[in-house]
Structure formats: C-alpha cells, structure tokens
Design a protein around this nucleic acid. Structure first.
Lengths: 236, 236
DNA sequence: TTGATAAATTGTGCATGTACAATTATAATG
DNA sequence: CATTATAATTGTACATGCACAATTTATCAA
C-alpha cells in the first residue's frame, strides 16, 4: 500500500477514534506532518484523497475540517467498485438467474469494445439489500480479459475476485442513467408491476490501462434504493 | 486563473485542434512540459485535473490518452455547478413560477443548517432543455449568504451570478437521489400524469469554507432527461 | 464599543530533484 | 520462430524549499 493511501487510512481512523463530527477541525497541516511522520507532499496527497472521498474539506487560511453526510440508509454511488465496499453497514446478497459463456451480442460489443465473435460471460442476477430486492443486474465480462468465472465467485463480489485473484486493476467507468417505466419482464424480477418507476444505470468499466472489460445494466427497485453522492467542485 | 488550470485548458484546446479521439495518445510528459513551458508539478496537476474531468487517462509506463464518451444527448451530472456550464450544446431556459423571501421552513432549515427564523429566498421554476420540459426545481438560498436576488438573475444562471457578481466560492455538495411516482401536483408542472416515474435529487450546496447556502429539490422529466457520469476509481 | 489596520496563522501553487514501478521495445537464446 | 531476459521508455511516489493567498487573530484609533 502506498504511503499516502496508508496515511489517509490512518487519518480516517483518527477521525473515528476521536469521534469527530461534521465541521470539527483536524490538527493543522504542520502538526499532521509531524504526527504521521511524512513529508508535506505525501500529507497533501493524503488529504486530497480524503477530500475526494468526501471525508474532509480544506479551507485555506483556516484549517482542515471533517465532512459527513447526516442521512443514513443511502447507498454511496460512484465509488467505481461494486457495492461491497461502501455497503459494509448493509447485508448484500445475490441470486444468480443466468450464468453462461456466449458470443458477444452486437449491441453489447459496441459498448464493451469487443471484436465480433468474441466470447463473453453473461450474468443475470438479483441483488438483495437487507433482505429486500435491490436491483436486477445483467452484466457482460470479456473472456479475453476475465478468463475464468464460476457460480461461486459470482454469488460473492465479482470485482473483489478480479482485483485480488486475477490481479486486474480497475480504473474508470462511464455510467449512463435514465428513469423509465419498467417492462413486464423486469418488473416481474423485481416483484413490481409493469409501468412502475425504475432507475436504470448502464456502466462500462475499464481497466487502468483503458481497456473496457465489463458492460452492465442495472435496474433498481425504486422502493429499496436511494443514493448519496458527495461531489467536489471541478474548478473550470 | 491558476497556471495549472490554464495549462489544462490549453491541453483541452490541443485535443480539440488535433481532433484527437478516444484512445489517442498525447505527447509524453517530458514533451508536454517543454511544449507548455511549465514545471513537472504543474503539468502533473493539470493532467490530474483533466483526468478528474474525464478528458484523459494516464497509464504508467505507457502514456497519456484521450478519454471520450461516445453517447450524445446525455447531461453531465455532478459538475457541482448548475447545468449552464456543461450544457453548452443545449438550449436551457427557465420559467419562474414563484420567487419570494420567506422565513426558513423547519424541514429546510435542517438541510441548509440555518438558524430558526432566518430568511431564505424561495424559488420555484421549470427548466427547459431544447424546448422540452427538463425538470421542476425548488430551491432555498440563505439570505445571510446571498443577500440579494431578483427575477432577472433567476431567469439566467443563479450560480454564475453568485460566483462572478457576489464573489462567492462554491465548494462541494451533497446530493441525495431517489426514484418514485410523481404526485399529481408535480406531474401537473411537468405535464405528466400522476404516478409517472420521476427522478428526484435533493442537493445541499456548500461554499468552499463549508457553509451551506443552498438547498434544492429537483424532479426530472423522465422522458427528457438522461445523465452521464464519468467516474474515476478512488483506490481504497 | 466599533471599525479599520496590521500581523500571525494556515493551506495552496509552483519549481526541482531522486527513486521507482509498469509498460513497451530490444536483444539474446534455444 | 517463439520465449525469455534485458534495456529503454514513461508516468508516479515522495521529499524539500520558497512564495503567496485566504482567513483569523491581535492591535490600534476614534
């Protein structure tokens, strides 16, 4: 683990241990540098990381403060990773409906950038949160990049397997969202009625080297899903 | 404008001028440093900024590459700013339904962190995209921070006014999203039917110093809104 | 007490330099 | 020709140092 990541983790722990709340002030930069025995560069990178994660915010001339969202029960969107990480408070389970190795359909090939005839793993599963239906997920993994999957892996966290077992480095993702009325088919899976509202998110995941390896379409159960996003300005 | 921001802008222009596409390689770091006559630190910060904006991605040992989303007609969510910035391709208009200065309602006070009895500007408006109804927006601005607003300002971009005219520095925001069935009242404004799907986003906007100044609730017209988010891993 | 002014505090911008990791290109080997 | 080992390329981590901007605190004048 890199030093600035490690330091960031330690600062998070510090915030926990001291039970700091929204708006509470952390030690000043100089003090943090001494306390964690790192250089200014490293500490700055650590703080920047924490800022991006929505843990703190920094005010020049004033100090470094804790940032927290007050609402509970919201799923943190856009942590790139699956849910597994940011839903430690919740009980996530999966029910695999379909799992097969197929030639990549044309519509999918466009999104995942695969060549014609290339094989992909197709996975269809229902995901539950605290016993309730959270979403229906259909995903396609390029076998060229993910050579092997099985049901056992799929019932757990796929991404964790990719990173730890396969050593893949997950980089960035493009997400396309829209809201609409559920089709009878999807509604059936979610135990809802056709025409009920649904949030659909299509995502193309890329490795750090830019190669797309996974295209997924998730439709969320509107009664069991709500999301929080902590945005940081992008200074034009 | 800061040097690294300026440099980032110039690199964006470079990408445009050379009509670089998804996956195309930029000059190597050393070359960029010479070409734009800045230090390594500055160039690195510029590239990091562009990476966060989803313009490029970097691969160690390999190079710097252009990143583009292929889909058109999607609204970029989470640029912190209003739409004005990232919707240059679209025609955005507003129709103000209500505009008044009122004592802050209790439910709102919790979100925007105002003291009891504090005055807030309440604004209710319909926003149009390319002639179609995009969303219904209700927002509350603390007068303690935003001392003055008028109809003319409101019909344009409020955030632009806050930054340029008032010199406020907009920092971060917390967004809470959920999907549901529209009430008859909201549906009426959107020219939809009660029970139709709707995406609702509540947002609390903060200044860079952490003070919340705006709470807004936006309900999107499901047929005229679709969003794209370019996420970058957060390396646990 | 109020309000302006100066000074101290504190985070950010920018430059330079060393070391290193991941990738890619090249050379050697069978 | 394929494979392996080696070297060159290229971005990232980390340290140090100087200058500066925004904020807060202290000081002084009225």
């Amino acid at each position: 683990m890199l030093k600035y990541q490690q330091t960031a983790t330690e600062i998070e722990a510090y915030i926990e241990q001291h039970t700091l709340q929204q708006g509470d002030k952390l030690p000043v930069l100089e003090q943090l540098i001494r306390q964690f025995a790192v250089s200014k560069t490293t500490m700055t990178k650590s703080l920047e990381l924490l800022e991006r994660k929505g843990i703190i915010f920094q005010v020049r001339g004033s100090g470094i403060f804790v940032r927290k969202t007050n609402r509970k029960g919201y799923i943190k969107l856009f942590s790139t990773q699956g849910f597994k990480q940011n839903l430690v408070d919740h009980d996530i389970a999966s029910n695999v409906l379909t799992f097969e190795l197929i030639p990549c359909p044309d519509e999918i090939a466009q999104n995942v950038g695969s060549s014609p005839g290339e094989m992909v793993y197709y996975i269809k599963r229902i995901r539950y949160i605290d016993g309730n239906i959270l979403c229906l997920e259909e995903s396609y993994y390029r076998q060229a990049i993910v050579p092997y999957l099985n049901r056992e892996i799929i019932e757990q966290s796929i991404f964790e397997y990719l990173e730890t077992a396969l050593g893949l480095n997950i980089g960035f993702s493009d997400m396309y969202m829209h809201v609409g009325k559920l089709t009878a088919s999807i509604a059936g899976h979610l135990k809802l009625e056709a025409g009920d509202p649904g949030l659909t998110i299509e995502t193309v995941f890329h490795l750090t080297n830019g190669r797309p390896f996974d295209y997924s379409v998730i439709t969320y159960h509107y009664e069991h899903s709500q999301f929080v996003v902590q945005a940081n300005g992008l200074y034009l």
